[in-house]
Amino acid sequence: MSGILTRNCVATVIIQQLFNGLALGMAYALIAVGYSLVFGILRLINFSHGAVYAFSAHIALLFVGLNFGIIPAIILSIVLTGILGVLIDKTALEPLRMNNSIPMASLITTIGMSNIIQNLLMIFFNTERKSFPAFFDFGMIKFGSVQVNSTQVVMFVVSLILLVFLTLIINKTKLGLAMRATEQNSKAASLMGINTNFVISATFFLGGASAAIAGVLISGYYQIVYPGMGFMVGLKAFAAAVLGGIGVLYGSVVGGLVVGVSESYAATFMGSSYRDSVAFIILILVLIIRPTGLFGKKDIKKV
């Protein structure tokens, strides 16, 4: 009797954690998309993306604190974070492209940017953990014996909708066409009359905005916000992007889900201190075994 019960319990936990992981993973995918979009166009890993994500959560918190109401606060956070993304590019990265600087220069610049944003957050918002309102908590939803928090459902659904929306932008709109053209060959694209600088700005805006949405969702889930929050989540999202094949949008989704689910299981079955190491292990394994990720294309060495 008790054996059956425990077995049932284990099954419930497994399913429960699967839902947890899927919801979290979808949000990671949203952040991963930011890495992927920028990498696709600039062949650059935007190191400041994690800090941008932390920024979004703090901005949302700030406006909620100023009694703007939840929805306006979220919208403001999305817009301002998108603008922050554009600003990073315009102030720091675009001049480097103009100078034809070495790739290492952009990498180091984004590390510097990340440092600046994170430490400014610490100065203006304190280093403490601040509680964040549970935006989407409408109670529990029952699926048979498994109870799912509505926050997780919202997280999953919102992220999914946004990812579909992003895919549509990239595949169906004129802007998306310009983005794809710039990704293939930015020189040729600019010769064809595409304003590549605008395209790059748009990319940074989209990346920043998706990170903001993820920021609000994940903060609403954990109900906690602090300046260093972007570091770990940024790395996990990066692991997700690399796992899926950086530069491939649907790859980021698969990668995000794998990272999210394995993290949930690791936290449950191995102890919560291993929660954060899973992403690293995935990242390192992917880079060793198949650096192009699951769906990435292999570059031919040009001599």
């Binding site: 480097l96 600087s101 510097g112 430490n119």
Partner: peptide
Amino acid sequence: MDYRFVVYGLVLVLMMRFRP
């Protein structure tokens, strides 16, 4: 003192831009 890590970040960004 509080801003020192901001300044370290600025050092990276400005150096890459003006004197790599």
